[in-house]
Computed example of a mutant assay.
Amino acid sequence: MNISEMLAEQVQRLFTDRIDRDTWVRAEDGQLDSNLWQEIEAMGITLALSGEDAGGAGLGWAESEPVLRLCGVHAVPVPVGETSIAAWALSRAGLEVPEGMLALSDKIFELDAQGRLHGQDAQLSWLPVAGHVLVAAMHDGVMHLCLVCADAGRQQATETLDRLPCASFELDGVLPLQTAEAPFLDELGLRPHLAALRSMQMAGALARVLDLCVEYANTRVQFGKPIGKFQAIQQMIAELASQAAAAQVAGLYAARQIDADNASYGAAVAKSLIGRAATRAAAIAHQVFGAIGVTDEHSLHYYTRRLWQWRAEAGSEHWWSERIGREVLAQRGDHLWPQLTAPVGA
């Protein structure tokens, strides 16, 4: 068993023991589990992607994919993925990684001649509970990473489908705590990496939704037999299973593309596929469960609401699909097939 497998096993055990419906309810009320976060940090989960010189494990994105997917399987109500990615980016840029929860913006800010930040993010997840925010900023055509205190910008709480802490964030002449050039980022900044995270989280959530549907179909009895015996239900669950399986492969593909320094293409493929899968899978799940799936007491809607929220964040499936289409149209026709069949990293 390698480090990646051991970490995933420990994370699975921790999340299973510590996360339940009550944890989700408290998080949606703005009451995050500080003890859970301390355990996560103590296990080194948020530093798994970071280099050893930053105190991390130096794992690649593909090696960390199982852990990031588990954040979706358990609908983890703390910013594990965002903090992990921010720590990875900071360490790769040679910057210090602060302790505590980190928020991650997918918007491109402006870094002026005086080294001050300008820009806004209309919907920044976890901002109300984060200590710091990592943003990508452009200066003279060069992409930079900038770390700022969360309270350095103007915040306005916003409502989201997942009901988790979120706010708009505006910077106007704010001097960052740390700044460095980030040649490993393209013109999209941190958006591809956040999109890859959302893709892996959605893949995990889809797997859990599938499990919930299978369990319910085998136990809910109607007309004298479990509803899972009806062909219509079987067909829907089979389609849901195919969507979940495809999503997991797509999420891993995005991770491998980041390892190969091709983050935007991997994110585009994964987010466009998984976004559509989330739409269809959520509809199927609520058809299988019927009215009980939307009651406060049931866990299904905690997953489907997150699927709908994550689908929209860091570029929707429509946004990424259009980007792929524009790139294809900008090339000669004979380039399409080699691009589709090229191995990862080629």
Results as ranks from 00 to 15, higher is better:
105 S>C: 14
268 A>T: 04
303 Y>G: 00
63 E>Q: 12
67 V>W: 09
56 G>E: 03
245 A>S: 10
54 A>Q: 02
142 V>L: 11
48 A>D: 01
319 W>Y: 14
140 D>W: 08
103 A>T: 02
191 R>E: 14
45 I>H: 10
6 M>K: 11
218 N>S: 15
217 A>H: 05
253 Y>A: 06
238 A>M: 09
83 T>W: 15
161 L>W: 01
293 G>F: 02
226 P>N: 06
234 Q>V: 00
230 F>S: 01
256 R>T: 07
295 T>R: 13
132 H>S: 13
215 E>M: 09
339 Q>T: 09
9 E>H: 01
101 M>G: 10
69 R>Y: 09
6 M>A: 12
186 D>V: 03
70 L>T: 10
107 K>G: 06
337 W>I: 15
305 R>H: 00
208 R>Y: 03
114 Q>E: 15
330 A>E: 08
309 Q>F: 02
212 L>W: 01
82 E>W: 02
161 L>A: 00
64 S>D: 11
1 M>H: 13
22 D>P: 03
108 I>Q: 11
327 E>A: 13
2 N>M: 04
205 A>H: 00
33 D>F: 00
225 K>A: 10
152 A>W: 00
157 A>G: 11
233 I>C: 05
333 G>E: 15
108 I>P: 04
322 E>A: 15
178 Q>G: 13
172 D>P: 05
37 W>Y: 06
119 G>R: 07
17 D>K: 14
246 A>L: 09
130 A>I: 15
202 M>G: 03
200 M>H: 04
77 P>I: 00
312 A>N: 13
316 S>I: 09
20 D>T: 01
221 V>L: 08
221 V>M: 12
321 S>W: 07
255 A>G: 06
107 K>A: 12
255 A>I: 07
236 M>S: 06
245 A>E: 15
224 G>Y: 05
76 V>F: 06
278 A>W: 05
165 P>W: 02
239 E>V: 09
256 R>E: 15
180 A>N: 12
271 K>F: 10
19 I>V: 11
265 Y>S: 02
113 A>P: 10
29 D>M: 01
16 T>F: 06
200 M>R: 15
308 W>G: 01
72 G>V: 00
238 A>P: 03
43 M>G: 00
210 L>K: 04
115 G>E: 08
67 V>C: 10
261 D>N: 10
175 L>M: 14
68 L>A: 08
22 D>N: 05
66 P>G: 13
81 G>S: 14
171 L>P: 05
171 L>E: 02
156 Q>V: 14
87 A>K: 00
261 D>K: 09
155 Q>M: 12
58 G>A: 02
190 L>R: 09
281 A>L: 07
79 P>F: 08
264 S>L: 07
69 R>C: 12
67 V>I: 14
119 G>W: 08
270 A>T: 04
252 L>M: 11
139 H>G: 10
40 I>S: 10
97 V>G: 04
330 A>M: 11
346 A>F: 13
85 I>F: 06
147 L>G: 07
213 C>D: 04
234 Q>F: 01
28 E>W: 00
45 I>C: 06
49 L>W: 05
91 S>W: 02
260 A>C: 02
320 W>C: 13
268 A>W: 03
109 F>D: 10
94 G>I: 08
